[in-house]
Every structure is written in C-alpha cells, then in structure tokens.
Simulated assay, not measured.
Amino acid sequence: MVPLLLDLQRATHATLHHLTTALADLHLSPSELNALANLAVFPDGTGTVSELGAAAGVRPTTLTGIVDRLEQRDLLTRGPHPRDRRTVVLRLTPAGAEVAARVIDAMAELERRALAALPSGAAADFAGVLRALTEAAQ
C-alpha cells in the first residue's frame, strides 16, 4: 500500500504542473503562484512575511527571493508594519490582485473538475484529513 503522504506529494506535483502550464502566460514559478494566492486570501491582500511563510509553507529566508521577484514585477509591495518596525508587511498591488485572482480561479476550476465525480461530503472529509496532517506535522 502506498502511503497517503506519497499520494499527496504526487497530487501536489501534478496540480502545480497543471497550474503552471495553465497560467504559463504569467511567467511565474509554482512558488510565486502559491505566494500570490496565499496573500490574496489575507484580509485586504495584506500580511506579514511570517504569516505568508506559514500559509505558503515556506521559510522566511526562502520567501525573501520569491517576494523580491514579485516586487520587481510590481505584483506586491513591502513596507514597515505600522506598530512593529521589525516586521515587514506585504501587500498585493492592483496588478498583483488581478494575477492572484486568476491563480485562485485556475485552482478553483481544477478543484471543481477533480471533485465533480466524488460523492457528497468527500471534499469535506478530505479537508479534514489535510488539517489533521498539517497539525500532526507542526
């Protein structure tokens, strides 16, 4: 029997390949797509580097390069936190919000197609499994 985590890793790679191909005109890496999509679900498209790193599953040191590239493309800005000068705040630009919306739409469409044949409740059960795996790994 193949471990569930190995199946999950294969599914992750397949979905990242699909999304990168479907959004090839954006010329963004899977990590950049992931960062934009995660930042887009924060209130007002704004979050700290630590928050985005945790949501995207990326260490802050790795995230720095991703943020640098997205900032160079004017898809996000970074600036000081209003109450903590040690904290960096990331904010989607209007162009970044448009790109992030495309990424989320592509993710939602793939999810709809993948889940269409599954019985009612299967997606909620799967979401529970994902939450349990996330919690166990922390």
Score class of each variant (00 low, 15 high):
P82Q: 04
P3S: 12
L36A: 13
A40F: 08
R131C: 11
L92G: 05
D84A: 11
G79M: 07
L70G: 01
E135L: 14
L8G: 14
G121K: 13
H17R: 13
A22Y: 12
N34E: 11
H27I: 11
L33G: 02
A95L: 08
A100M: 06
A54W: 08
L6F: 12
A55D: 10
L36S: 08
D74Y: 03
A127T: 05
T93A: 00
A54Q: 15
M1K: 00
R102V: 04
R83D: 15
A54T: 14
V129D: 14
R73M: 05
A136P: 12
V49C: 00
A56G: 14
A40G: 07
T15Y: 04
S120L: 13
P119T: 10
D68G: 02
A137E: 08
L26K: 02
A54G: 13
I104R: 15
M107V: 13
T77Y: 11
R73P: 00
R85E: 12
R102A: 03
A124R: 11
A40E: 02
L19C: 14
D84P: 06
V67Y: 08
A11W: 07
L16R: 03
D74V: 08
Q9V: 10
L4P: 12
S120P: 10
V58Q: 10
R86P: 00
P60A: 02
N34T: 05
A37L: 06
M107I: 08
A24Y: 06
S31R: 10
P80S: 14
R112M: 06
A14E: 02
D7C: 01
A24Q: 08
L92M: 06
L23R: 00
H13T: 07
A132N: 13
V2E: 11
T48Y: 13
I104P: 04
A136D: 04
L110H: 15
F42P: 00
D125R: 15
A114W: 06
F126N: 12
H13G: 08
L92R: 00
A101F: 02
T134A: 10
P3V: 04
R112S: 12
A124Y: 03
A22Q: 13
L75A: 00
G45D: 01
L4F: 14
A106G: 09
T12Q: 15
L4Y: 05
T62H: 15
E111T: 06
